[in-house]
């Protein structure tokens, strides 16, 4: 079997497995997995910029929140129905990611990290500042009646699981497709040696811009769907912590692998879920994981798997 077919079988298999799992999982884990799939979609988006293009952003919460608030505010204040609201979330994500990219991509390395961090922080503070509309930290609830998409009630657990699975499948397959296309392969080359890519005649700025917009738009889609499926929009999703999470998930699962973001999100979600039952200081786990991963396993779980066993893994 060729590498392309094998990877299609592997990722298709994951989606089939996730589809089958809903019939056997107990309620609690059923709900968790729906949440994990949406968050993993966010991580997939993050991975396109960090894992494949080599640009470490500390401000992706801005994109997640752009999708979430683009969706939520239009429902809340303009009376949108879910479908146009989701579109509004996506468009907000595209605009915000393009805007930030045009500024931040003028820098590189450490400066890029700080610039993304600062603009995301400004976005978070802006949400707080316009508390009259956004209800700030407290956030607002999207009522059940406003969460009916084409006659399907998204607050129902089964429907919600399906919706999350569809989003995740789209994001995963988009990523898989992207990295096997010339565009994606050029991004990997930019990560490895940008100057060389430029001297092969590629417009590396345009490639990085494209990567950041795709990455930001997927993140925004995840944010919009998250708000819609779980019925809540709040400023905490725009905070620094939600910029750190996708970095953590991707590092754990394996940066620059298609499967990594899902695996990292799954593990970290349950690790934090488990430890928050024991202590309020559950973010300690995240801190320790960040340090240990950076020190001992910068490739992450899937990266190690690729290095040791399956070299064809995309």
């Amino acid at each position: 079997m060729s590498a392309a077919r094998r990877s299609l079988a592997l990722h298709g298999g994951l989606i089939a497995l996730l589809f089958a799992l809903q019939f056997v999982l107990p309620d609690y884990h059923h709900g968790n997995l729906a949440r994990i799939m949406v968050l993993a979609s966010y991580a997939v988006g993050y991975n396109i910029l960090f894992g494949y293009t080599g640009l470490l952003s500390l401000g992706h919460a801005l994109f997640f929140a752009a999708g979430m608030y683009g969706m939520g505010l239009t429902i809340q204040h303009l009376g949108f129905t879910p479908a146009p609201a989701l579109v509004a979330g996506l468009v907000t994500g595209i605009v915000v990611s393009a805007g930030l990219a045009l500024l931040a991509l003028r820098t590189s390395g450490v400066a890029f990290m700080i610039v993304t961090l600062m603009f995301a922080q400004a976005g978070y503070l802006t949400i707080l500042y316009f508390g009259e509309y956004t209800r700030g930290d407290e956030g607002f609830v999207i009522q059940q009646a406003e969460r009916v998409l084409w006659g399907i009630d998204l607050s129902d657990p089964t429907n919600r699981y399906f919706a999350a699975l569809i989003l995740f499948a789209i994001c995963l397959m988009t990523c898989l497709h992207l990295v096997q296309r010339p565009f994606g392969k050029t991004l990997v080359a930019v990560r490895e040696n940008e100057e060389r890519v430029r001297m092969l005649g590629y417009d590396t700025f345009a490639h990085k811009l494209g990567a950041m917009i795709v990455s930001g738009t997927i993140s925004a889609a995840a944010g919009a769907v998250y708000g819609l499926l779980f019925g809540y929009v709040g400023a905490s999703f725009a905070s620094v912590q939600y910029s750190i999470f996708p970095l953590l998930w991707v590092l754990l699962g394996g940066a620059g692998t298609v499967l990594g973001p899902f695996i990292g999100t799954l593990f970290m979600f349950y690790l934090i879920d488990f430890s928050s039952g024991i202590t309020t200081a559950y973010m300690l786990i995240a801190g320790v994981a960040l340090v240990v991963l950076t020190l001992f396993a910068p490739q992450g779980l899937t990266g190690e798997l690729r290095r040791r066993l399956w070299r064809w893994l995309p």
Partner: peptide
């Protein structure tokens, strides 16, 4: 200034694919 972590094939393919 080759792409050290990519196969020789992909190195040259990047040059050709433009």
């Amino acid at each position: 200034s080759v792409f050290a972590r990519l196969p020789a094939r992909e190195n040259v393919a990047l040059a050709a694919r433009r």
